[in-house]
């Protein structure tokens, strides 16, 4: 099902540290993500998972450490530290947000079309004169966006305003928008938060499908059932540090993990 080629990391994080005015939110974090792998990032609230995402995507600037991203096709490696968020997205890593950040007064289709921005090129003059190249590019954008919407199951609502969608649909639209940037690594921040069981099931199928199409996925999730069924590998964080890493089965029995979740005296 998945032609995994381990030992070819596309994301390699080493010694990642970030301080906020004396508080160390991330502490010498090391981990990697391999081609077409689903890695889950878990840990109690405040463990620094979203901070890690913000570091990876260039919203925060890490104090120390290194983030390397390697394109699986060309094998070209880039250091992400200090790059702007848009440059990082251009390099092939896209994300969703924990508290949904859609462009709510734009339509569903337009939201996905925004994702195509960094893969298209027309500029001011193209917009004004609408020459053939621009028109073709626009058509391509529309069609690719529509295909993505079909994939995430929103093809019926292309002209709806994004803000009017149901919660589960908004989460799927965020995934679609991120996919439109043609990433090879997708970062999902609590994609199942607030979803009912049916919606979660649809989401799981969607994430699997995305992986099977050749994307690697790094996700933050609190729904343990989802994490255990979906992920190839789990990284556990607490207080900004990595406390465990392994297959779901290995994590299930890990004492440190149980302690981190349930407190000192249990286990």
């Amino acid at each position: 099902m998945m032609n995994k080629r381990m030992n070819k990391p596309i994301l390699n994080v080493s010694g990642l540290t970030i301080d906020f005015g004396g508080i160390r939110a991330l502490d010498h974090l090391d981990f990697d993500v391999q081609v077409t792998e689903i890695v889950a990032l878990i840990g109690p609230n405040g463990a620094g998972k979203t901070t890690l995402f913000n570091c990876l995507t260039g919203i925060y600037r890490p104090t120390d450490g290194e983030i390397l991203l390697a394109c699986p096709k060309t094998g070209q490696q880039t250091r992400l530290n200090g790059l702007k968020p848009n440059k990082i997205t251009e390099r092939g890593m896209a994300r969703t947000f924990q508290n949904i950040r859609l462009f709510s007064r734009m339509t569903v289709l337009e939201n996905v079309m925004i994702g195509r921005h960094c893969r298209t090129h027309s500029l001011i003059l193209g917009a004004i004169f609408r020459n053939r190249k621009t028109r073709e590019e626009e058509q391509e954008t529309i069609h690719k966006s529509y295909e993505i919407l079909e994939k995430v199951g929103l093809a019926g609502q292309v002209n709806e305003l994004a803000g009017n969608l149901s919660y589960g649909a908004q989460r799927r639209l965020e995934i679609g928008r991120a996919l439109a940037t043609e990433p090879f690594l997708l970062l999902l921040d609590e994609p199942a938060a607030g979803m009912n069981p049916q919606e979660t099931a649809v989401l799981v199928a969607l994430i699997r499908q995305i992986r099977d199409e050749g994307h690697a996925i790094l996700l933050i999730e609190h729904d343990m059932k989802l994490v255990m069924t979906l992920s190839d590998r789990v990284v556990v964080m607490d207080y900004g540090k990595k406390i465990a890493q392994g297959t779901p089965d290995q994590i299930r029995g890990n004492r440190d993990v149980i302690k981190a979740y349930l407190g000192e005296d249990v286990g």
């Binding site: 702007k84 968020p85 848009n86 997205t89 947000f97 734009m106 921005h117 960094c118 298209t120 027309s122």
Partner: peptide
């Protein structure tokens, strides 16, 4: 009108709606 309905115009709207998401979607703000 043409500007508003172009790639650039959509990017402006996205900027208005959410600057952080806009940048995260690969737009050079």
């Amino acid at each position: 009108n043409r500007l508003q309905h172009s790639r650039l115009g959509r990017a402006w709207l996205a900027l208005r709606e959410d600057e952080i998401a806009c940048q995260a979607m690969g737009i050079d703000k």
